[in-house]
Design a protein around this nucleic acid. Structure first.
Lengths: 224, 224
DNA sequence: TCATTAACAATAGTAATACTATCATTAATA
DNA sequence: TATTAATGATAGTATTACTATTGTTAATGA
């Protein structure tokens, strides 16, 4: 039996709430580990079942399929970043400083204190950096969007755009900039590691400082 | 027997050059149509084989698997945009104007004259907009990168970054901006259609003018 | 305390997917 | 005319993505 914070996610994402049982928490924990190690394409419920000494059938009682489980995990990340931004900007009055904190949350989310024991935030961030966008770049977006499965991302975009508007109320593209900062973070952390010719940033000692500086520079220029 | 321009792609992408035979050209033509209609996840060689009255085995003689076929198509697009940029900026001396043409190529590539009969550029652009990034967001990036499978994208990034440097030689992030413009194009065309709360642009009458204006505005601000 | 239920494990089975292999046919080429 | 290359036809395999059934155990409740 484990206690602690519960992240609240759209209940259409699961059949049985994985946060409420040991098996469920194991599914979350080890799906993150397996996806991080082998990628979403070669991840299967069968492999996960073996890893956690359970069965495919049992996992299917929690999630309809691997795509939805993946979407659940990415939603978790979106909610977590939302949470980080909320608590870290809470007592900040300067809007530019808030935006700096937001960018830092995008880039270095995994350096924050873990929220729950069964989620390895560092691995989860790496998954989102490298494969997160796959959850909405599908033919099912519209159907899933209408079920509210992307609400956490929209909430994030809204929160960030609000700060952007504080910094520069006349800026015409607050939502675009908000999502672009998030997507840029993911892309350029990934590019720096795998396709360095596609970016000017590099990752030194596993730290994303260059990406962070780059994002801050873009924001500064755009909102000047 | 068809004549015409041949797009030159990394020959590690195919087993037999699909541009050299009717079957090969049919594979290209109808894989684009099927992927556009049903998405890459539900696209299979079996379905393609039925569509073109051939067999799975025959398609496997051209491409090792569907991921590589997909990568071939995305490479085609990258090469095509490279080609458009080259010919359309050829006689332009003003660097800012060149960058405008580049952005227009990203956004409205499909409005250009078709290069070959068997590639529907409009469908291909829609595929790249919505699913193109999946070709490199995989666990095989490094292996495929070392085979040169992403060279066309790098060439594109290089060409665009060169113009960015012409416009503002002191700009610190030319590659980042180059790839970000391309990725932003794809993302926001997709968002405008499927997740409008994630962007400020909208698509009116199937025209991407708002996305184009938005990109031009970003570039103007960043390179000012 | 006995009966019921919930959660899970164990097992089996199915259709589709992602291939590989073999052999026959046809068209081009030498 | 003989050979080869390209394709078609067919079959087969391992894996994936599920669904269904049955049994066990632990908690709950009357």
């Amino acid at each position: 039996m484990s206690v602690g914070i519960k992240i609240s996610l759209n209940d259409g994402l699961y059949l049985r709430d994985p946060q409420d049982s040991d098996l469920g928490r194991n599914i979350i924990k080890y799906s993150i580990i397996l996806i991080d190690e082998f990628g979403i394409e070669s991840f299967t419920f069968k492999k996960l079942a073996i890893k956690i000494n359970s069965t495919e059938a049992s996992i299917y009682r929690y999630f309809v399929n691997k795509h939805i489980l993946f979407l659940y995990l990415v939603n978790w990340y979106w909610e977590w970043v939302n949470y980080l931004i909320r608590i870290n900007t809470m007592n900040i009055t300067n809007s530019k400083a808030k935006l700096g904190i937001i960018i830092h949350s995008f880039v270095a989310a995994s350096n924050e204190n873990p929220l729950v024991e069964y989620v390895n935030e560092s691995r989860l961030q790496r998954i989102v950096n490298s494969e997160g966008m796959k959850v909405y770049h599908t033919k099912d977006v519209d159907a899933e969007n209408s079920k509210g499965f992307f609400k956490s991302y929209k909430d994030l975009a809204y929160a960030v755009s609000a700060v952007i508007m504080e910094v520069n109320p006349s800026f015409k593209y607050p939502y675009t900039l908000a999502t672009n900062l998030f997507e840029m973070t993911n892309n350029h952390i990934f590019f720096a590691q795998h396709l360095p010719r596609l970016t000017d940033a590099s990752i030194v000692d596993n730290e994303n400082d260059e990406v962070e500086n780059m994002l801050n520079y873009f924001v500064e220029k755009l909102l000047a």
